[in-house]
Nucleic acid binder design. Structure first.
Lengths: 190, 190
DNA sequence: AGTTGGTGAGAACGAGCGTTCTCCCCGATG
DNA sequence: CATCGGGGAGAACGCTCGTTCTCACCAACT
């Protein structure tokens, strides 16, 4: 019955991801994670020495997964302009997931941002990573001021992320894509 | 020493606003509100029969205050286009407040959205009110499709709200205003 | 003056939290 | 076969929470 360390870790992270994301980090107790993962409390605490450590691991994994999903969508396009618009197609796919509940980093930041500097830092890093990706795409598309275009695109994306969460509809991704087209037309050299 | 009902209610709501907004609703206990407001627990519970009721009153007051601050900024301009851009000036003023911590509705939704339908509903209503205001402004500016323009402007606004919270800088309001200018140029009839 | 009713201060209660500890079983080692 | 160490189940601990209760007190009415 002894489960090997790697699979135990994966089971715990799977459970943490599902529960933390759905109900928020504070509302989920370690006991719920133990039940959902099937890993005993003792083992859980020797894999992750505290709940804070588990939250950090949860956010780390979300960050990596999110980035790889984004890259997958972007890399399916070759035209630089299409690669930018692929960001919004990715968002639309994401929003349509049955259990979509907004951005885990924004949600965690709202819960713990003032009390946990680590969570605040992780949220900032995650968003800076996104900003960097958008800046690279804008540069490749020949934008005269790539950072500025990236900032504009970020605003549309983040806005769509929270609006979709609250309204429960994936449509904001489509509206954001329309607005992005207008911005690209106004910004990129023809 | 007996405090009159209206002022007791105001003191409780003042304390709730400050504490809920700064630390999140779940992290603040009724005891902290009692201490900060100086109103005894007994009185507190006869003013608001439960913490949920207090949270609802907190969100209601935030909604009213937010709307009136927005209206104040918008009504300072007369040109329809300027009235739209005044929205982003309002955001910039808001973000510069020392204790700015994002949108109370987004934060509360992130904490309680899945477990409290009432909070989810209030968040949706708050955002719909904003959407309606932007639709009216877009209509007054002669937009060919006011609802679509309103959606685009909302995305910029919400994006700025969360980005400013996480980055700790008010600058996203300026970036959002720039993008709004580009969108207006592309959308409004000259 | 005596009674009543509501108030403030805070103790009490039951539940849930993060974390640790106990106890029992099991497979590996000599 | 005897021993030992690590793992599972879950009880236990100390704390905090939302909510209620106790009790002493004070103002107003008869």
């Amino acid at each position: 019955m002894a489960i090997d360390t790697a699979t135990a870790q994966r089971q715990v992270l799977d459970a943490a991801d599902e529960l933390f994301y759905e109900r928020g980090v504070q509302a989920v107790g370690m006991d719920a994670i133990r039940t959902a993962s099937g890993v005993s409390l003792k083992r859980l605490y020797q894999l992750f020495p505290s709940k804070d450590a588990l939250i950090e691991a949860y956010l780390d994994r979300r960050d990596a997964l999110w980035k790889s999903m984004l890259a997958e969508h972007v890399d399916a396009a070759t035209d630089p302009r299409d690669r930018i618009l692929a960001v919004f197609d990715f968002l639309h796919d994401w929003f349509r997931q049955r259990d979509y509940r907004g951005c885990a980093f924004i949600n965690s930041f709202g819960e713990l941002g003032t009390v946990s500097p680590r969570v605040a830092e992780l949220a900032l890093q995650h968003k800076e990573g996104f900003r960097q990706a958008l800046t690279d795409l804008s540069k490749a598309a020949g934008a005269p001021d790539p950072e500025r275009l990236a900032d504009h695109l970020i605003l549309l994306s983040e806005g769509a992320i929270t609006r979709s969460a609250i309204s429960g509809s994936p449509d904001p991704a489509l509206r954001a894509r329309e607005a992005a087209v207008l911005l690209l037309d106004a910004t990129l050299p023809s």
